[in-house]
């Protein structure tokens, strides 16, 4: 296990492994997303209150989930990088940030689209939405801070520290619907209680969540390969790569 972990830290080995892994993430992701989209949009029954409007949940919930998951993953990688000085961990954090920011934006945008017909407003300053917006700003801050340094290694470490500090926002997002009883409805799926939706709706949602996770894994791995190439430019092993690698 440790041997494998250390081997993974070596850029050429990681580059090859990641290249082999990507199809294993990407193809199931494509299949699940396709199935989930068809199932969610066409097969699942309409909600008795919201009609077809509820179907945006199939985009909204998985992207919200991944927005937070991506941040935690980035912060954990940042901590690993700061503690064990692993260069690959910083590269992972750098690869995560834009993807997570994109999911955060997608979550806010779909929530806003759904809110207009359901609540009558595009936006409401309640706890969940505000803390999600703060998450987007944190992502942008991490990206901007890394970019502001001329010295890439220093930028990595500064951005890593900021990512760790920003983790305080994650529990706020998670519990915001319980602390402030406002417009955003509480969680639909919870480990401790029965889900508040029927199985024929929930099944497709879980399909989408797993599909999104695999998509996230595929995109981050792809970006990570790019990051590794960028950071190792000038290294000898890159010259040995032929076009297909």
């Amino acid at each position: 296990m440790w041997l494998w972990f250390h081997k993974l830290g070596s850029p050429p080995y990681f580059y090859r492994t990641a290249g082999r892994l990507i199809p294993w993430f990407a193809i199931p992701a494509a299949l699940l997303l396709l199935a989930g989209t068809v199932g969610g949009l066409a097969i699942a029954p309409p909600d008795y209150e919201q009609g077809d409007g509820f179907r945006i949940i199939y985009v909204h919930v998985p992207s919200a989930y991944l927005a937070m998951f991506g941040y935690v993953a980035m912060a954990v990688a940042a901590a690993i990088g700061l503690i064990w000085r692993m260069k690959l961990a910083f590269a992972f954090a750098a690869a995560c940030a834009p993807v997570g920011a994109a999911f955060t934006f997608l979550c806010l945008a779909t929530g806003s689209l759904w809110g207009k017909p359901m609540w009558g407003v595009w936006w409401d300053w309640d706890g969940r939405m505000t803390s999600m917006l703060v998450l987007l700003f944190l992502y942008l801050g991490v990206i901007a801070l890394r970019g502001a340094f001329d010295d890439a290694a220093k930028g990595d470490r500064a951005a890593a520290l900021l990512a760790i500090v920003g983790v305080v926002n994650i529990p706020i997002i998670k519990f915001s619907v319980d602390w402030w009883n406002t417009l955003h409805q509480p969680a639909t799926i919870s480990k401790l209680s029965a889900p508040s939706m029927t199985m024929d709706m929930l099944g497709w949602l879980l399909t989408m969540v797993v599909g999104y996770m695999l998509f996230f894994a595929a995109v981050v791995t792809l970006r990570l390969r790019g990051e590794v190439l960028l950071r190792e430019r000038g290294a000898r092993w890159i010259r040995g790569l032929d076009g297909r690698a």
Binding site: F137, G141, A148, F149, K154, L162
Partner: peptide, 24 residues
């Protein structure tokens, strides 16, 4: 945030992006 940006020449813009979300 100021400590993070202390070694930057043009840290002011980044400083705002870092501080204001956390000050919400």
């Amino acid at each position: 945030a100021a400590a993070l940006t202390a070694s930057l020449r043009r840290g002011a813009g980044v400083l705002g992006i870092l501080v204001l979300p956390l000050a919400v």
